[in-house]
Design a protein around this nucleic acid. Structure first.
Ligand code: ZN
Ligand code: ZN
Ligand code: ZN
Ligand code: ZN
Lengths: 164, 164
DNA sequence: AATGCAATGTTATATTGTAACATTCATAAC
DNA sequence: GTTATGAATGTTACAATATAACATTGCATT
């Protein structure tokens, strides 16, 4: 199972409502541009894995991706998925949610940023947030202890607005 | 293997230098008090697992603990270790380092606090730090998005002072 | 065509973590 | 002291996550 069943089906294109198809397409286009810029190759396989990640629009587990991919791709094996995930993470297109062993598409792959997430323990929704002040404070606190920061992850567990 | 070989052997009681035995004993005494206070039972098994965690004085993997424990404890199985780890985490005596699937003794188990860590990618040393301002900022950022925070973890990867 | 390298295929295995049920142990009630 | 109770541990089996190692394919350069 995925990390959550949340919103496996999305509302269809009402006014102001999340248009899932459009969202996925935007993510894929953005990914293509990002890879172009970085001189990285978004092969059909990698692109398809990224699309599958966005399909659920929520953190997805590697073996769920594998099961889905295997239905359309004969040779799919764990290495297939993990290689694609490694590539996508290196390219900044996907984040790993460590506390869940799950992977989430990044909607800000156009600029460098750190991984900060709000994880709802009730509905399993996850949202990425950016707060430069927070990132800077973490950096500063680390430097004050003589530590040089390469990467930081923040995972906040709790209840989203609609689950409280 | 453990997360790192770092400091498997510690310097012995020089002036101002980390005295490992004393440090472990302090942690165990503190743990006993904490369990007393919380009305939780620090059984010999749980106490021994906590001691093994402190022995390395660095994050340790569950199956490394298991291998060590098995040498002195006949019936040791995965469940043995994971149950002890669950208990110790609930009691606030141990933190899980999500990015490493590893467990670290907490030296501040006497008061409630969140898990903030600096992880050196070179020597594998990990230090826990506390910064109320940081915890508060995370809380505030989450609340601003209508999110109710139960728990937060911060893992900062980089180079410690001596590894730069 | 020959070479080299990146990507993928393929098989096997390592690592991490749970489920389920039996047994033992400590405590309190009788 | 015996018995009832629930917590803790023993025991076996298995699920879930991830990597190693080597073969093959595809593609670009020479
Ligand atoms: Zn992102
Ligand atoms: Zn929710
Ligand atoms: Zn702590
Ligand atoms: Zn270091």
């Amino acid at each position: 199972m995925g990390v959550g069943m949340a919103k496996a089906t999305k509302k269809k294109t009402a006014a102001g409502v999340h248009d899932h198809r459009r969202c996925v397409n935007r993510a894929l286009s953005s990914a293509e541009r990002a890879c172009e810029t970085q001189g990285k190759r978004l092969t059909p396989l990698r692109r398809r894995v990224l699309e599958l990640i966005w399909d659920g629009h929520a953190p997805v587990k590697a073996y769920d991706l594998l099961r889905t991919l295997a239905q359309e791709h004969a040779g799919a094996a764990p290495a297939t998925i993990y290689r694609a995930l490694d590539f996508l993470q290196d390219a900044g297109l996907v984040h790993r949610i460590n506390s869940q062993n799950a992977y989430l598409g990044c909607n800000a792959s156009d600029h460098p940023h750190v991984g900060h997430f709000l994880l709802c323990t009730s509905c399993s929704n996850v949202v990425e947030f950016e707060n430069d002040g927070l990132a800077a404070l973490i950096d500063e606190q680390a430097r004050a202890q003589g530590f040089h920061v390469d990467r930081q992850t923040v995972e906040v567990m709790g209840l989203c607005r609609s689950c409280q």
